[in-house]
């Protein structure tokens, strides 16, 4: 599996670290909304298909990336710097808002 880092170009997956589901939305630190915290910690879409993910190019430029990966085929559909998160992107996996 190759992931194309926006800085380094195509690299083997061994250089990257999975940082988790990119659909999670962390509540404000002071939030008392237990349902929101529960959703952040436990709720996952677990799609069979396109999935928003956060990866770090830990064995390269060390940038955090937002990646759309197909969980069936492992095809990487898009990569971009993670600044701003999945919410801000046009590359977001369809139907997973």
């Amino acid at each position: 599996m190759l992931i194309t880092c926006p800085y380094c170009g195509p690299r083997d997956v061994i250089e990257f670290t999975y940082q988790g589901d990119g659909n999670r939305e962390r509540p404000q630190p002071a939030s008392q909304d237990l349902d929101a915290w529960n959703a952040y910690v436990y709720d996952r879409l677990n799609p069979a298909g396109d999935h928003n993910e956060i990866w770090q190019h830990s064995g390269g430029c060390r940038a955090h990336l937002r990646v759309v990966r197909n969980t069936i085929t492992h095809e990487i559909l898009s990569t971009a710097f993670a600044r701003g998160g999945h919410k801000s992107t046009e590359n977001r996996a369809e139907g997973r808002s």
Binding site: C8, R11, E15, G59, G60, C61, R62
Partner: peptide
């Protein structure tokens, strides 16, 4: 320049 690793060593 390139950043990469060899056996997990940067």
């Amino acid at each position: 320049g390139r950043s990469t690793n060899h056996h997990d060593i940067f």
